Amino acid sequence: MTERPAGSVERDVTNLQIGPSHVEWKGDALEITIEERDKRLFNPFRRKVRGKVRVIPESLNPASFALDPAENHIWHCMAPRARIEVDMEEPGVSWSGQGYFDHNRGSEPLEDGFRTWHWSRAHMKEGAVVCYEGERGDGSVFASAIRFGADGIPEIADLPPAARLPSSGWHIKRRTRSDLGVSEVIRTWEDTPFYARSELSTQLYGEDVVSVQESLDMRRFASPVVQFMLPYRMPKEKR
């Protein structure tokens, strides 16, 4: 990822262009064309990252959800279930599997609206379930569980008991939801000073599932130390 100025961004009804990369609806699939370079800590050489990712929704959900009373932050799970096809040229890897597609939008920075949040998503035998909870910037809390049917239509569900997880390597506090109040971390995919994404083994609504879980600490993100560190991991294009 590279931070880019507004002049490097264009969009129309079906296409979003960010620098040399773009995201475009083509028929029934969302096609992501990646033209980037990575950046590793203390490594001045930026390798090319180039290829395509296709996201093919099994169904589409038209409903969005506000994460705060003022509706400054909106979450939209567009495809609760999807298939993905990844074909990278650099590095030369490819695979296919299950996927998911959502986005957040807002009228203020995330660090103004939230202190922490925890999110998880699991494929069920039919449809999918998303659990979303956290603490807003004003100290109020929110928590919800949403079940999506095979047709993608959402329905608010009873919130399963909280299940605490071990802190990440950077001591980010993690939590999720489970029928039995317990869950196991299979592996952590991303572990940073303010964010962790993990694969979990858990039980939801009577089904044994594998879920994707993330925890975000916006107080950590906004700290001067982390802001100083970010450019070493995420290059910034000059305006």
Rank of each mutant, 00 (worst) to 15 (best):
T188W: 09
L110V: 15
F114G: 01
A163W: 06
W117C: 06
S140Y: 08
P109Y: 03
R177N: 09
A122F: 12
I153S: 14
S201P: 00
R197L: 13
V212W: 05
F114W: 10
E135V: 15
A157I: 11
Y205G: 01
E111S: 13
L216T: 11
R147Q: 14
A163R: 01
T192H: 03
R219M: 12
L204M: 03
D151F: 12
G139V: 05
I146N: 03
E207S: 05
V182K: 14
S167P: 00
W170L: 00
A163E: 07
E190H: 08
Q213P: 07
S168R: 04
A122I: 12
G137S: 10
G181W: 00
H171W: 14
D179Y: 03
P160W: 05
G137E: 02
V209S: 03
L200G: 05
D112G: 00
A163N: 04
W189P: 00
R175K: 13
K173N: 11
L165S: 03
R187Q: 13
D112N: 13
V209M: 00
G206I: 06
G113T: 03
W117P: 07
I156R: 12
R136D: 05
R147G: 15
G149K: 06
V130M: 06
I153F: 11
K173G: 01
D151G: 02
P160K: 09
R197A: 09
F194V: 06
P154R: 10
D191I: 04
R175D: 10
E126V: 11
S201Q: 13
D158M: 08
E155F: 04
E135G: 02
A150M: 05
V130R: 00
S120F: 08
E184F: 10
R177V: 11
F221E: 14
A157L: 09
T116G: 04
G149C: 07
V210T: 15
I186K: 11
T176M: 01
F221R: 12
P161A: 06
K125P: 00
V209I: 13
Q203I: 07
D217G: 02
F142P: 01
T192W: 03
G169M: 02
G137V: 09
P193D: 01
E214P: 05
R121E: 05
S198Y: 02
D179M: 08
L165E: 02
T176A: 01
F148Y: 15
V185H: 07
R187F: 14
A145L: 03
D112E: 14
G134N: 02
L204K: 05
S144D: 02
I146L: 12
G113C: 03
T116E: 10
P161Q: 07
L216I: 12
Y195A: 04
E133W: 09
